[in-house]
């Protein structure tokens, strides 16, 4: 007995000449020439003083600035995400007081420029010279701090960026939670899971798919927003570069230097975002597309199948 298809020759594979696209080539050449000429003029512009850029690129002051920029980004995003989850859960809470306070927080922090908030926290001592924790409404204080010693410039920077980010993340997390089908909550509840367990194990992991891409954008934004705290003399990347130029007035090379560092950092974030998004895409597609690395390997194997056995 023969199986269907058995013993039959494979049909000849199609090898057709693809359609030509002369227009595409013309467009590509025009755009290519324009970009190349801009790039050339930039690279050869003596005012940039590339030698100064490279000389200072890895100087201690700049490296310290880069590290501080990364710290500001990471900490503010972490606190922002945690705050965002808390605020978003409060928005979904059955308790109207929690819902309203979450709404007010988001309204306040999204409604004022982050630059203003940074200046506010920096000048908090002018508003409250003492920060007391104790009986409310003017009662006795249990802990008491001097604002100027507690909220230094760096603390003000971290506070302003984190609290502001919390408001934005709250909206992102909330849209993620809303995107999860109500049947999921119901199934979890029917299994005897509490509201907290349902949120933690069922809703949030699925909301991640919606939350992660805009959070990546937020992180990239945050990386750049940290430059604003240079206004309160925190030596992050921008202020560190400006410290050079405030002495020798070589403004352009230092701005180019800072920009290159920002580009390097954002590029790293791009790669991280790609892999995180893949991780939270699990279970949604029947099969995940290969990563660039897997694609290169597959291409190589196709090209040189002989290399495989050796």
């Amino acid at each position: 007995m023969t199986q269907p298809g058995e013993g039959r020759e494979l049909p000849e594979q199609i090898r057709a000449v693809p359609v030509r696209h002369p227009g595409r080539w013309v467009a590509a050449v025009v755009v290519g020439v324009v970009f190349a000429s801009i790039g050339y003029s930039f690279a050869r512009n003596p005012n940039i003083q590339w030698n100064i850029v490279w000389e200072r690129f890895f100087s201690q002051r700049i490296i310290d600035g880069v590290v501080l920029t990364i710290e500001l980004t990471v900490v503010s995003m972490l606190v922002g995400v945690i705050l965002g989850v808390i605020l978003a859960s409060m928005r979904q809470s059955p308790n109207p007081v929690l819902r309203a306070s979450s709404w007010f927080y988001i309204w306040l922090f999204r409604g004022t420029p982050v630059y203003v908030q940074i200046l506010f926290w920096f000048s908090i001592a002018a508003l409250y010279s003492q920060i007391n924790i104790g009986v409310p409404f003017g009662g006795a204080a249990i802990f008491s701090f001097d604002s100027n010693t507690l909220i230094t410039a760096i603390v003000a920077g971290f506070l302003a960026l984190s609290l502001n980010e919390g408001a934005y993340m709250a909206e992102i997390v909330r849209s993620g939670i809303i995107s999860v089908d109500h049947g999921q909550t119901e199934a979890a509840n029917a299994l005897g899971m509490t509201r907290l367990q349902t949120t933690r194990y069922v809703v949030l992991p699925q909301a991640m798919r919606v939350i992660v891409p805009p959070t990546g954008n937020e992180t990239i934004n945050m990386l750049k927003t940290t430059s604003l705290v240079s206004a309160i003399s925190i030596t992050e990347l921008l202020y560190a570069s400006q410290k050079f130029s405030s002495v020798d007035f070589r403004v352009i090379p230092m701005l180019v230097l800072a920009s290159i560092w920002y580009l390097i950092l954002t590029s790293v974030l791009y790669v991280c975002q790609y892999y995180i998004e893949r991780r939270y895409g699990r279970g949604t597609a029947r099969e995940l597309p290969p990563t660039p690395r897997q694609r290169v390997i597959a291409f190589w194997r196709n090209r040189f199948p002989a290399a495989e056995g050796s």
Partner: peptide, 30 residues
């Protein structure tokens, strides 16, 4: 509720978990 099993028209499996993980979740967490 944990003592009452419920099966839905639209299955409502947790899509981010494998079949086994779907089954293991409630016994482990609840």
């Amino acid at each position: 509720r944990s003592a009452i099993g419920m099966v839905f028209q639209r299955f409502n499996l947790f899509p981010h978990m494998t079949a086994a993980q779907n089954i293991m979740l409630a016994p482990m967490k609840v």
